[in-house]
Amino acid sequence: MAAIAQSGFREPNLLMKMASRPTAMAGLLIIIAMIVLALLAPVISPYDPAQLAVRNRLQPPTWQHLFGTDDLGRDVFTRVLYSGRTSITVGFAVVIFASVVGVFLGLLAGFFRRLDAPVSRLIDAMMAFPDILLAIALVAALGASATNVVIALGVVYAPRLARVVRASTLVIRELPYVEAARALGVPTPVILVRHVLRNLTSPLLVQATFIFANAILAEAGLSFLGVGISPDIPTWGTLISVGRQYLEQAPWIMWFPGGAIIITVLSLQLVGDGLRDFLDPRLAKDI
């Protein structure tokens, strides 16, 4: 673990390094492209994603409707673009939520000896639940809405992050300059932010990328099981769960959002994998 702290990681040339690895770079470019497509959806598509045209339903892909139309006559291409906004936002929000909670818990456990045992036990208890199972139960308890899906998935992934943070903090805490700062009477919060958090950026970044990917998959899974985001909010997951009943008649409704998920998640994994290799070769072994 010592390697994490020593290697310092304020790599100015991260992008350059990424460029040296084509798969990671490709992943990064695709993600950026997906985000841009989602943001520019209104510019790219002439259609309104919610505009019903019941009489024009289940049309196969044409130049007019690139991805065809769905069961209510809405343009699937437009819906995939707009869904990208929600799906990516949900994934990102889960990362933020999980990071805030995870870092907080991890720092508490790693830095304050007295809190280590109780916080670690809580983390152990949370991690005893399989992730989808815990998410289903939490969403059922909180009610199915985008916010609650974010909270549920955040709660699911936070302990995983907390573990990584705790382990790293335990090491960083013992570093000479941290001990020196403590001896000099620098207030604990300042030490935590200035020394500990900075050293945590790299393991966090790697974890965050994978959580991002997992969150997008998990959101789709919850929507499929009917315990996720309300289907009137288009996400890739809800598009698939609506489209599955037309898998035979109009397979395009399900194929395209599925493809969008695969592309996005794959790119995120490629980036995560690349980051892990550059930032911390040692971590490459810990899944």
């Binding site: 019903l52 069961d71 209510l72 009917g226 289907p231 009137d232 009943q245």
Partner: peptide, 16 residues
């Protein structure tokens, strides 16, 4: 609810 998909679709059109 989406227990019955046609309920939900009617709701969408009714909304419009």
């Amino acid at each position: 609810s989406r227990q019955y998909e046609f309920h939900y679709k009617m709701a969408l059109v009714a909304q419009a």
